[in-house]
Amino acid sequence: MKRVLLPEKKYAGYIFDLDGTLVDSMPLHYKAWRLALEKAGAPYEAFLPEEFYSCGGKSARDVVLYICEKYGVVMDPDAVSEDKRATYLNLLEREGVTPIPETVDFVRSLGDGAPVAIATGSMMPGARMTLKSAGIEGLFPLVVTPEDVAHGKPAPDMFLLAAERLGASPGDCVVFEDAEPGIQAAAAAGMECVRVETPPEYLTRI
């Protein structure tokens, strides 16, 4: 399965989501979510694989709030999201992740000093460790996380901030995304978007 149709047009800024776009880390994130949610008392039917992927790119705190509202459960969004992050980092250290060749090779093809940035729903420690585990931390000197903005995806804040830090106007930027919240955020930011497809087998793999 070809996961991405690469653009031929040149842009002033190239902004990438991280998990599921540059790195095959979504199955590991899902495992961390299942463990954290079970510990917090969420019902098993909350956040099954398709729903998990539909929330890709959202901050962990926003995901917990979404689950609480949809399933009528009471959980501390800060405590659960922190537990999920810690669980993910432990899994990452033990199991590791791999880069997605199509997007990472494209970044390398842009050359040294290219106007590239990451805008991810992960917090900075997790983002940095994910990049390091995949062996691509040197490709992205600019990383924007939910800590940097008032609103995470699907709001456009992270993409707009990434463009600003790249010195590019939003209309001259392209976003690479695998999940609907990020695609919505790119549209809200006035940016073109390249979708990175999720292989169908991932829904059964996780």
Rank of each mutant, 00 (worst) to 15 (best):
K70S: 08
Y71I: 02
E82V: 05
P77R: 01
R61Y: 13
K58G: 00
S81E: 09
E69R: 12
K84P: 09
V74D: 08
D62A: 12
V64Y: 01
R85S: 15
V64E: 06
V64S: 00
A86H: 13
Y71R: 00
K58Q: 12
L65S: 07
T87R: 15
D76V: 02
I67P: 06
V74Y: 02
C68S: 12
A86F: 11
K84Q: 13
K70R: 14
V73P: 06
D76A: 01
K84A: 00
V63D: 04
A79D: 14
V80W: 08
A79L: 14
L65T: 07
A79V: 14
R85M: 14
D62H: 05
D83T: 13
I67S: 03
G57R: 08
S59W: 05
E82Q: 12
E82N: 09
G57L: 11
G57V: 12
V80K: 02
D62L: 04
E69Y: 04
K84V: 00
K58Y: 03
G57K: 09
V63A: 11
T87I: 15
P77A: 02
D76H: 04
E82G: 02
R61S: 11
A79I: 13
L65P: 00
Y88I: 10
E69A: 12
A79Q: 14
V63E: 12
Y71E: 03
G72E: 09
E69P: 02
P77V: 03
G57S: 10
P77Y: 03
I67C: 09
D76W: 04
D83W: 06
K84D: 02
D78F: 02
S59R: 09
V74A: 05
S81R: 02
G72F: 05
G57T: 12
E69Q: 11
A86N: 15
D78T: 05
A86L: 15
D62K: 03
I67D: 04
R85K: 13
V64Q: 03
R85F: 06
D78Q: 02
C68V: 09
E69W: 03
R85P: 01
C68G: 07
V74R: 07
E82Y: 04
T87W: 11
K70H: 08
P77M: 03
V74F: 02
D83F: 06
A86K: 15
M75Y: 02
V64G: 05
G57Q: 07
A60D: 15
I67Y: 12
D78K: 02
A86G: 12
D83P: 01
D78C: 00
Y66R: 13
A79G: 10
V80D: 07
V64R: 00
R61K: 14
I67A: 10
R61V: 15
D76Q: 02
K84F: 01
P77F: 04
C68D: 11
Y66S: 07
I67Q: 05
G72P: 05
A79S: 14
K84T: 10
M75E: 03
V74C: 01
V73F: 05
V64C: 08
S81Q: 06
E82P: 00
